[in-house]
Computed example of a mutant assay.
Amino acid sequence: MGDPGELDQALLNPTRLSIVSLLAATRWAEFGYVRDSVGLTDSALSKQVSALDKLGYVESDKGYIGKRPRTWLNLTSAGREALTGHIRALQLIASAAGERGAGYHAQDAEHRPGRRAGAEER
């Protein structure tokens, strides 16, 4: 992630944003929990986790609970930094748009939607 006010292209994908946001609130979440929480299939989550892993945003660890294999996922410090910067950029965009919108006043009330030009108020 470059500039702290820059959107992270990988996190523009809502699924990847959901995964890293969930992982930001946990530590070593079980794959099935993430899958169910984000509402994906195993293969869809695996694909997204692979993409995030290549970026260094997510790490995984495999192990067993009894005889059942399990995979756990964790957000790396790079992933946490990317998410923080991405959220900051979104907040800046929303704030700037809100300020511009609050400062906008129609020059002429005649231009309100649903009004015909020259129509009188009743």
Rank of each mutant, 00 (worst) to 15 (best):
D42H: 13
S43K: 13
S43M: 09
A44N: 06
L45M: 04
L45H: 02
S46Y: 00
S46W: 00
S46N: 07
Q48A: 10
Q48I: 02
Q48P: 01
Q48E: 15
V49H: 03
S50Q: 13
A51T: 11
D53R: 15
K54T: 03
K54H: 06
G56R: 05
Y57N: 02
V58M: 05
E59H: 11
E59D: 15
S60W: 13
S60E: 10
S60V: 08
D61F: 14
K62P: 01
K62Y: 11
G63K: 09
G63S: 11
G63V: 09
G63Y: 05
G63N: 08
I65Q: 12
I65D: 13
I65C: 05
G66L: 11
K67C: 06
R68N: 12
P69G: 07
P69Q: 14
R70L: 07
R70F: 09
T71D: 00
T71Q: 10
T71Y: 01
W72F: 15
W72Y: 14
W72I: 02
W72D: 08
L73P: 03
N74V: 10
L75H: 10
L75S: 10
T76R: 02
T76F: 10
S77A: 14
S77D: 15
A78G: 04
G79Q: 04
G79D: 05
G79R: 04
G79N: 05
R80K: 15
E81N: 10
A82P: 02
A82T: 01
L83R: 10
G85C: 06
G85V: 01
H86P: 02
H86Q: 02
R88K: 13
A89N: 00
L90Y: 05
I93E: 08
A94S: 12
A94H: 07
S95K: 08
S95I: 00
S95T: 08
S95Q: 09
A96Y: 00
A97P: 00
G98D: 10
R100C: 02
